[in-house]
Structures are given as structure tokens and as C-alpha cells.
């Protein structure tokens, strides 16, 4: 909200529930989006090609094809940020969508504030431009160029793995990262099942970076899916 875009961003809503589409339209238009909507997967892909949206809100349960299929088709030609809408108890669906290229997810029923925040993060990461050299969140300061991590101004010693884990989080600040995504980036493609490494190093990072490690506010757990680095802890 600090930088108001010159033109209204376009949001494409792909959801088969008319009531939900109506609600999202009201809510998004009130927050400065132009809204295009589609009631089915095929229709959504066509709409995405025609209206070139800045962000897509995609429901995973569609009548003609699954959300993941829509996502795969979209990703064949577009890098548009996609936020997935899903019901609470299908963690595997969320993970599949994220691994298929979704940028984030919101669980139904959702608060509009939460949805808007996710949309903003997704849009920002999709924008080309130089990465900011220094990341700040609360008392944490990460200087990616100098490879220095400071907490309340004091430098924190991290191991090489801890640092590459933190760097991955910083690069995707505000976005959810699945276990597999993190493991692939930090430990390599052969470590995809080694979740216990991830757990141990997350605990280490929290120990070193969180004010109260037992109640983490910086690196939060997305139950059954992965982790998220909060920008505004």
C-alpha cells in the first residue's frame, strides 16, 4: 500500500460458486482491483489468456478439471502469481498445488484481510526488479550481500545450512514454502524425504532468531504444509 500502482491491477477469480465469486468481486473491487471471473477451469484458462491478470485466485475444486490441472496448464505459458483457495483438511491438495507452481494458499473459510495480504505478497514476488539488499522484519535484519544476520543490532552466528535456509525464507518472505521446496533448495533434490533435518534446523533458527522460541512469530508453521517467514511479526 506504500506504492499505489498507476493502473488498477487485474485479479482473475476462478471459482464455481457464484456466491463466492460475488463476494470476492465486491471485496476485491473495494480494494482497488479490477475483477474478471470464471466459473470453470477451461473458462478460467481462456480468461487468463485474454485479460492478462496480475494475480489469479484459483479454487481447487472445479467442475471440469482439478485446480492442480488448471495450474499446470497456466504454468505452461504464464508466470502469473496464483493464490489457491482450498478447504481446510486437504493438506495434500495444498501441497500438490504449491509444488505445481501456486504461489500461496488461503484456507476456506477465510478472512478477506488474510486473502488480500497473500495477494499482495504474491504480486510483489512476481514483479521483476532488483532484490532489496537488506531484509528487515521486527528485530531481525538480514544483509544478503554481506551475508550478515543481526538481531536487535547484534550479529548472530549461523551455520552454513542455517544461513542458506534463512536466505531462502528471506527471498520468499511472506510466502509459504513447502517442506519439499525447502529441502530441494537447501539440501538438494536427493534430500526430499529428510524432513527431520528441516525440523532440526528450523528449531535451531528459531532458537537463535525468535524472541521466545517456544512461541515463534517469525518463522511460523503452516500445519502439514510447510513454513512461512512473516514480514510483519
Amino acid at each position: 500500500m506504500n506504492d499505489t500502482p498507476a493502473r488498477k491491477p487485474t485479479a482473475l477469480v476462478i471459482d464455481d460458486e457464484v456466491q463466492l465469486r460475488r463476494l470476492l468481486r465486491v471485496c476485491l473491487e473495494a480494494n482497488g482491483y479490477r475483477v474478471v471471473d470464471a466459473a470453470a477451469g477451461q473458462e478460467g484458462i481462456v480468461a487468463a489468456a485474454q485479460s492478462r491478470p496480475d494475480v489469479v485466485i484459483l479454487d481447487l475444486g472445479l467442475p471440469d478439471m482439478t485446480g492442480v490441472q488448471v495450474l499446470q496448464r497456466l504454468r505452461e505459458w504464464s508466470r502469473v502469481p496464483v493464490v489457491v483457495l482450498s478447504v481446510r483438511d486437504r493438506e495434500e491438495d495444498k501441497i500438490a498445488a504449491l509444488d505445481a507452481g501456486a504461489d500461496d494458499y488461503v484456507t476456506k473459510p477465510f478472512g478477506t484481510g488474510e486473502l488480500l495480504a497473500r495477494l499482495r505478497v504474491a504480486q510483489r514476488h512476481a514483479q521483476p526488479g532488483p532484490e532489496p539488499g537488506v531484509f528487515r522484519a521486527g528485530a531481525l535484519e538480514v544483509d544478503l550481500t554481506a551475508r550478515v544476520v543481526r538481531l536487535k543490532g547484534r550479529e548472530v552466528k549461523l551455520t552454513a545450512t542455517e544461513y542458506s535456509l534463512l536466505r531462502l525464507f528471506v527471498q520468499h518472505a511472506g510466502k509459504v514454502l513447502t517442506h519439499r521446496q525447502i529441502l530441494r533448495e537447501v539440501w538438494g533434490p536427493r534430500a526430499l524425504e529428510q524432513t527431520h533435518y528441516l525440523r532440526v534446523y528450523i528449531a535451531h533458527l528459531r532458537e537463535k532468531l525468535e524472541t521466545t522460541p517456544a512461541e515463534p512469530r517469525l518463522i511460523v508453521t503452516e500445519s502439514g504444509v510447510g513454513y512461512r517467514l512473516m514480514e510483519e511479526p
Binding site: 525440523r199 532440526v200 528450523i202 522460541p213 517456544a214 512461541e215 508453521t221
Partner: peptide
């Protein structure tokens, strides 16, 4: 899967 129990409890309390 391997889980950090403290993390589990924290996430539960958060919810």
C-alpha cells in the same frame, strides 16, 4: 513424518 513437538504444540495453541 519427523515433527518438532514444541512446534506442534505452538501451532495448536495458535489455532
Amino acid at each position: 513424518d519427523w515433527c518438532d513437538v514444541a512446534d506442534l504444540i505452538q501451532t495448536t495453541l495458535h489455532e
